[in-house]
Design a protein around this nucleic acid. Structure first.
Lengths: 177, 177
DNA sequence: TTTAATAGTTGCTTTTAGAAACCAAATATT
DNA sequence: AATATTTGGTTTCTAAAAGCAACTATTAAA
């Protein structure tokens, strides 16, 4: 299938998906988190076709989520390690993980637990919070145009002008009622 | 392409991706968050091919992330609304959003801001926390087999038996060093 | 009553994923 | 040093998705 790229969309979500939204990509990242580094190990653990794996790894390296480095100092052979950029996907991975855990398996069927290594306790579910750390309910999450908003985006938020002449944007509620 | 399903994998992440990991799906969810409900509006906003949109919407309804309901009480025509299950993807969407915001645009180029509607302040970045709410560093996140672990999973965590005969599992660090 | 909009479907093309076979380089074995 | 094996791919082929445009049936608007 000729597939449309999301690159032209001015949306952080679309950009993220452009880099990690392909089939297999996030499972490769998961596998890297798990400690897998070598081509054959990714292949064997995931059961992915070798040509597809090669393509995904290339792309992840090109996009700076993985980097290739010698398996040992001075060795010829190389393997794949997460970069800072790749490691920062942890919240994405955990968010998906917790969602699947909750809505596909229940708590009694969860195959893997995410724990605090120092206590062994399960970690908390990810929560949306205000800038000062208070949990924020869905209804109170809003959207507003950012500094990089283009015309299309600003159009979706209506412009309003206050009495003092300052430009405001109508805040859109996240989640339609 | 004949595409392998992730359904057989005993992994919450794989299950989540099976339901929302296809091309376009998460952008459709985003659009639904934004308030879009009708077929043509999804199509026009996203620029997705109509047959693909039809397929995705069907699948999302079948999987209980969206539901079809009359556009108005008593009306013939129907549109699509998020279910509880779909709305609970908010952390996934925000995690991806924040990642893209950080690593593709910078703070100065962000097209859309996520805010607390009551104060107008930007929301906090999602953070991994312990069960009692303290922020948890990457290095302290661990994995252990859950109640629904199968043989393959348990194999990846080595089994250890304590003096009292109780079975323990070696905790695996998330993120290889 | 006619027109227009909506919500798809159909058929065709292009691209991607999967499978298997193949191959060169690096490493391990004798 | 010669041989075997493992590793990290590439190539070729097939089948299924995604894109595109044209078409259609139903609902709503004028």
């Amino acid at each position: 299938m000729k597939r449309i790229s999301f690159e032209h969309m001015r949306c952080s979500l679309a950009q993220a998906l452009e880099l990690i939204g392909e089939w297999w990509t996030l499972l490769i990242i998961r596998e890297a988190y798990f400690g897998t580094r070598r081509f054959s190990d990714f292949q064997a653990e995931l059961g992915i076709a070798r040509n597809v794996l090669a393509d995904r790894l290339d792309r992840l390296v090109a996009n700076g989520l993985l980097r290739k480095e010698p398996v040992a100092p001075g060795a010829r052979r190389e393997h794949y390690r997460l970069t800072e950029r790749g490691r920062d996907l942890i919240t994405v991975v955990i968010a998906l993980f917790q969602w699947g855990d909750r809505w596909v398996y229940g708590p009694e069927e969860s195959p893997v637990r995410l724990i605090d290594r120092t206590t062994g306790e399960e970690i908390e579910r990810l929560q949306v919070r205000t800038h000062d750390g208070r949990p924020l309910s869905l209804r109170d999450i809003g959207l507003a145009p950012g500094p990089g908003a283009d015309e299309t985006i600003r159009e979706r938020f209506g412009e309003t002008v206050a009495e003092d002449g300052a430009v405001r944007w109508r805040v859109r509620r996240h989640i339609a009622a």
